[in-house]
Design a protein around this nucleic acid. Structure first.
Length: 278
DNA sequence: ATGCCCCCGTCCCGGGGA
């Protein structure tokens, strides 16, 4: 005897919110790629890193004219982060709290459709050991503190960006070759997992616990053609966001274009159980 | 062991990236 299909009625209207992160290695040099990807992907919130432009020079109007909301935290030449959203952006914080003397534009955070999102460009830290590695670890400790603060609000939180951490050897094409690097050192990995064990889910590993998934391929030595990649761009989800995770993936398309960024987007889809989105 | 490649600045090299 055939059983009738099970119908699950959700208590509230629901929709999906698609959040992506992309280190574009210069917003100006990648403007066409960004525009094309926004149009083609159906993304709702795009977290950008390494825009390499001052806040006032970011091509904000180009996106606003197409109906996007934009928040930017930039600086001259280096670093710089931004958020491009289909929904209004509220309550913006520029700069990672915890060090008023830190002038590097590596963090922007905002509320979008009931979800708290952050675009993160974590310091590289090479050469290690050294002052740049110390800066990286101090920055990660501040990020941990901020991540804990954000849990108190009990809202969905997405910490997305270029973390410059290769969490496990499986996330690297050549672990011995990367031994001792600031991206694989035990201190960097410990700081990354401290955030995770503090209550955040690595979205990609939550749904794909095994296998190699890369988000970055060096420009040099044919790394892309040889698939010599590493996984350093991550989406970390608070419990409220993790509970609603339905899909996650890496879009390798943009890395194969002409004049690409050396990173490619990582995205996730969250089920929205309220009326904010969609 | 080093550099390959790419982007920025007021610029034809050097710093930074990872």
């Amino acid at each position: 005897m055939q059983l009738p299909p099970v119908v699950v009625a959700l208590p509230f209207p629901s929709s999906l919110m698609r959040v992506a992160s992309w280190n574009v290695n210069s917003a100006k040099a990648r403007l066409d790629h960004i525009n094309d990807w926004l149009a083609a992907d159906g993304v709702d919130v795009l977290l950008l890193q390494e825009i390499k432009s001052q806040t006032e020079n970011f091509p904000r109007d180009l996106f606003v004219e197409q109906g996007w909301y934009v928040a930017v935290h930039g600086q001259k030449s280096y670093n710089g982060v931004a958020i491009i959203s289909r929904y209004p952006i509220e309550d913006v914080i520029c700069g990672l709290p915890g060090d008023p003397y830190d002038e590097q534009a590596r963090y922007i955070e905002a509320m979008i459709a009931g979800t708290r999102v952050a675009s993160i460009y974590l310091p590289n830290g090479n050469p290690a050991p050294g002052p740049k590695f110390d800066y990286k670890l101090a920055w990660m400790e501040r990020l941990y503190a901020r991540s804990q603060q954000l849990l108190e609000d009990e809202v969905p939180v997405v910490l997305g960006g270029d973390f410059n951490v290769i969490p496990q050897d499986i996330d690297c094409y050549d672990p011995p070759g990367w031994a001792g690097d600031a991206l694989t050192r035990i201190e960097s990995r410990a700081a990354f997992f401290k955030i995770c064990y503090g209550g955040y889910m690595d979205a990609l590993r939550a749904l794909h616990p095994d296998g190699a998934y890369y988000t970055y391929w060096d420009y040099q030595a044919g790394a892309w053609q040889r698939d010599n990649g590493v996984r350093i761009d991550h989406l970390l989800l608070s419990p409220e966001a993790g509970d609603s995770l339905v899909a996650v993936g890496i879009d390798k398309g943009p890395r194969g274009l002409e004049k690409p960024s050396d990173h490619t987007p990582i995205w996730c889809e969250l089920l929205q159980r309220d009326s904010h989105a969609g």
